[in-house]
């Protein structure tokens, strides 16, 4: 029996939704890989049972759960130690993790210690005729797709968040939660987490949001970002920005989308006054739907847009906001 593992990412003591997206991937792979099961690896401290059951209801046949005070917060050293011990014990065929800051820290740290291959930020996973994992990812700023195969085991990959929908709940599913005891000492956790400074200025941040509304130089000045915020708020989305406006100090760096900022993959990306440099496109062009508003009909952003509005965003956006507010009031 071959095990397909997903890393069930935990944030603030709860399983994060990205884990359920990985279950969608794993269910697809399970259908293509003979005699395989899906196991979720869950580490933390006092994770609610409901979360473990939800992993099962969304597709996991097994949940390996390791509970330890030293696993309360994600810190790579003890997390990697536990993951390696689990891997050595249960010998999975495939391990996938989200390409989040956690996954992109834990997986490379773990893979090199196991002397196995790892593919970053995949947007497609498949199984070939010989049963190997085929890992497809954007390369060269998203201009080319590359498919990669791993000759060693386990085959490891991180998967771009939001590149699939979360697996739905199926109440009839059954599975088992296996509590695994892994001994950890203080020496295994040399790095201490001192504090967490949550971004309270918005409900979701660009990496997590289903909808991102981004502003570029066409916004005109820092103060004008309030219409970007308002539109994002109405849509329940996050505020993004081009590098240019971050460098001008109109908005802070965590909002930056693109090569030297964050790569995002929301359901809808709305680009306001963004010309669409190749660096910006690299950070958002895999978004499911792209809407752009820009004065310049030749703006590069229109090349990747599903809907492009050639016009002054200061004319269009206020009308859009008005309409959305009216729609909201109807409900």
């Amino acid at each position: 029996m071959k095990e397909i593992w997903i890393y069930a990412e935990v944030r603030e003591d709860r399983v994060n939704e990205v884990a359920y997206e990985l279950l969608t991937r794993a269910l697809d792979l399970k259908g293509k890989l003979e005699d395989s099961i899906i196991s979720a690896v869950l580490m933390g401290r006092n994770i609610p049972d409901a979360d473990k059951q939800e992993l099962i209801k969304r597709g996991a046949d097994r949940v390996y759960y390791v509970d330890n005070p030293l696993l309360k917060d994600f810190v790579v050293e003890p997390y990697s130690k536990v993951l390696i011990e689990l891997i050595n014990r249960y010998k999975p065929e495939i391990i996938i993790a989200p390409a989040t800051t956690q996954g992109r820290t834990l997986m490379p740290y773990t893979a090199v210690r196991l002397q196995t291959g790892l593919t970053a930020d995949c947007t497609g996973l498949d199984i070939d005729e010989a049963g190997n994992l085929l890992q497809t990812r954007p390369a060269i700023g998203g201009n080319v797709m590359a498919t990669i195969r791993t000759s060693t085991r386990p085959q490891m990959a991180t998967v771009r968040p939001h590149s699939t929908r979360p697996a739905p709940i199926d109440e009839s599913r059954e599975g088992e939660v296996i509590e695994v005891d892994v001994s950890l000492t203080e020496e295994d956790a040399p790095v201490k987490k001192l504090e967490y400074l949550k971004d309270k200025t918005q409900v979701v941040t660009v990496q997590d949001a289903d909808i991102v509304v981004s502003g570029g130089r066409g916004i005109g000045r820092a103060d004008n970002f309030k219409i970007v915020y308002r539109l994002a708020e109405l849509l329940g989305g996050a505020v993004g920005a081009s590098r240019d406006v971050v460098d001008r100090g109109w908005i802070t760096y965590p909002h930056q989308v693109g090569l030297s900022g964050k790569t995002v993959n929301p359901k809808v990306y709305i680009a306001l006054g963004i010309s669409g440099s190749i660096q910006h496109l690299a950070g958002m062009q895999t978004s499911e739907t792209i809407i752009a508003i820009n004065k310049d009909p030749d703006a590069q952003i229109f090349r990747v847009s599903d809907l492009g509005i050639v016009g002054d965003l200061h004319e269009v956006v206020p009308v859009l906001i008005e309409r959305l507010e009216a729609l909201k009031n109807e409900i």
Binding site: Q115, A146, I148, G311
Partner: peptide, 23 residues
């Protein structure tokens, strides 16, 4: 010494509608 190999490269699907409206 590399456990991973690129087996194929291809163009990303461009499935954008690309509708433009001039205001």
């Amino acid at each position: 010494g590399s456990p991973t190999r690129v087996v194929k490269t291809f163009n990303p699907k461009v499935a954008r509608e690309g509708k433009l409206i001039e205001v």
